[in-house]
Design a protein around this nucleic acid. Sequence first.
DNA 1: AGTCGTTTCAAACGATTGTTTGAATTATCT
DNA 2: AGATAATTCAAACAATCGTTTGAAACGACT
Lengths: 217, 217
Amino acid sequence: MEDKKSSSKTRAAIMEAAGKVFAEVGYSKATIRDICREAGANIAAINYHFGDKKSLYIAVLKHYQEIAFRAYPPDLGIKETQKPEEKLRAYIRSFLTRIMDDVHPAWFGRLLAREFTEPTWAFDILVEETIRPSFQLLTEIVAEIIGKNSKERIVRLCSMSIVGQCLYFRHSHPVITRLYPGESFGFKHIKESTEHISFFFFARTHRRRKEQAFRGK
Amino acid sequence: MEDKKSSSKTRAAIMEAAGKVFAEVGYSKATIRDICREAGANIAAINYHFGDKKSLYIAVLKHYQEIAFRAYPPDLGIKETQKPEEKLRAYIRSFLTRIMDDVHPAWFGRLLAREFTEPTWAFDILVEETIRPSFQLLTEIVAEIIGKNSKERIVRLCSMSIVGQCLYFRHSHPVITRLYPGESFGFKHIKESTEHISFFFFARTHRRRKEQAFRGK
DNA sequence: AGTCGTTTCAAACGATTGTTTGAATTATCT
DNA sequence: AGATAATTCAAACAATCGTTTGAAACGACT
C-alpha cells in the first residue's frame, strides 16, 4: 500500500531531500520534519509513500547506490589488457570521485563514507550490494601487483590501506581546515590524491620520479 | 557550584560510565539515563556535578585525553638520535595503541577515532590540545624521511595517508567481519599493522624483505 | 455531474530526550 | 548533639522525536 512505485511528484522530492539531509547529519540526527520541510511536503507524506523512516532510508540508499555506481563504476576506464598499476589508479580515482562528489548523483558519497566508519542497521545492504563486489575487485588488482601467490591477509592489509586513505581524504576536511586554514583536499584535488595514493603503493623510487613531474605541472 | 572538583564517589563513577557510553554510541545517541544507570547514580547527579550534558562530555574528553597521552605519548620510545624510520614506526605504534585500546585508560581511543571522522562541537578542544601537537610531530618525522625541503603539501599528504590508514584499521571492524568472517585486525595485531603501514611508507624493496621475515615469525 | 480511489493536510498521540524542582538524606564542623 | 552545608532522590517539566488519525482536496473515469 505504501512501497509501490507511486511515482508522484512529492515522492521524488522526498527522496531527494532525504538524501541530502541523511548525508548531511546522518540517519539518527535527521528528522522527518526537516526532510519534509526541505521537500515541501507534509509530515505524513513519508508514512504514506514509504511506510516509515527506516524504509525511507533504505529506499534512498538503494536508489542513489544504483545511480552513483552507474556514474562512477569501480572499473571505470579499466581495460582487461591494461597494466595492473593502471587498473589500481583507475580504481582509486573512481572510488575517490564516488565518495567526494557532493552534487552529481548527489550525497551518496557522503552516505557511503558515513556508513563505512559508523555503520547503521542498514549497513548489511551496502556490504552485500556495493562494498563486497567493490572490495573484491580491489583485492584482485592488489594481488596482481604484489604477486598472485601473496598471503590473503597481506592482500587484505594492502587493500585496507588504500580504502583507509581514500576515506580519510574525504573525512579529513574538519581536521585540515582547523590545522591549516586555507588548505583543502576535496573534489578538485582528486587527481592529486589519486596520484599520491598510487605513489604510496607502488614504490619510493617510482614516486620520486613522478612526483617531480607532477610538481612541475 | 557544579564544575568544581567535588571529588565524590559518584562523580568519578559518572565520568567512567559516561566515557564508556559516549565511546560506544557517540555523544548524541548517548542518554544521560543510560550513563546514570551504568554509574548507579541518579539522573539529576549529572546536572549537579557537571551542569549539563555538554559540560560532562567536555570533562570526559579532557580527563581521558590526559590519561591516554600519559599512557601512550606520541614520542613513545623515540630517542632524538634514532633514525627517522624508527621514529615513524614508534609514532605509528603509539597512535594505533592509543586508538585501539579499549580497556586501559579506557574508551578514549574510540572517542578520539569517532571525533576524527565525525566531529562534534567539542572537536576544537581536541584539535588544539591533542591533534595539533600530535600531527605536528608526525609531519616533522615525515619531513625528515622524504626530505626536509619537500613541499609542505606533500608532507601533509603523506602524513594524512598514515593517519588515514591507522584510523581505518580501527574503523574497519564492521566491514571486515562481514566481508571475511573470522578475520580480525584489532588490538592484538598492532605490531602487524605497524609494520604494514611502515612498509607502505618506506619502499617496496624494503617491504618485500621484511615481510618475508615477518611471515616467517 | 457524480463516484471512487489516491493523495495531502492539520492536528494529535505516545515515547523519549535533557533539564529542573524541592524535599529527603548524608556528611561536616563547632 | 545540633546546626549547617553538601549530596541524593523521585517526580515532573518542556521540547522534540516518529508515527497515526480522519477529514479535506484532488484526479480519473463512466
